[in-house]
């Protein structure tokens, strides 16, 4: 019990951050017309590609002699890039069509 309370108090900023972010996420989506669900899902898909930042981060501190980590890191950055670039480009393609009336 004490451990849990300690955890909460040492990480309270993080907990605030998470709770508020959840509300922002819900707020941002509220009241979106059905028509925009697919582009929105695709856009959100591109945004979670931010995981690539973690992939780059891990790559930057990999030991050069650790081949396995180098290979996995390369793959991680590659997959993350695909997620980001592909996600944003395909969303843009969808939304481009809504613009011209």
């Amino acid at each position: 019990m004490e451990q849990i309370l300690n955890f909460i108090s040492t990480n309270r900023e993080m907990i605030y951050f998470v709770v508020l972010s959840i509300f922002v996420g819900v707020e941002v989506i509220g009241g979106v017309p059905t028509v925009l669900h697919t582009p929105l899902m695709s856009g959100a898909n591109a945004i979670h590609g931010v995981v690539i930042v973690g992939a780059i981060y891990v790559m930057l501190k990999v030991d050069v002699s650790n081949t396995l980590a180098l290979v996995l890191g390369f793959l991680a950055v590659l997959l993350g890039t695909l997620n980001v670039v592909g996600g944003f480009v395909v969303t843009d393609r969808m939304l481009e069509m809504f613009k011209k009336k």
Binding site: V28, L40, V51, G54
Partner: peptide, 29 residues
């Protein structure tokens, strides 16, 4: 959510915001 856990791991705020945002917005969607 997975991206958000990466954010926890590195105390990286952009991964946290991006990840949680998509996590909660995606669930609502």
């Amino acid at each position: 959510l997975a991206a958000a856990f990466g954010g926890f791991l590195y105390d990286n705020k952009v991964m946290l915001t991006g990840g949680i945002l998509v996590g909660s917005a995606g669930t609502l969607l």
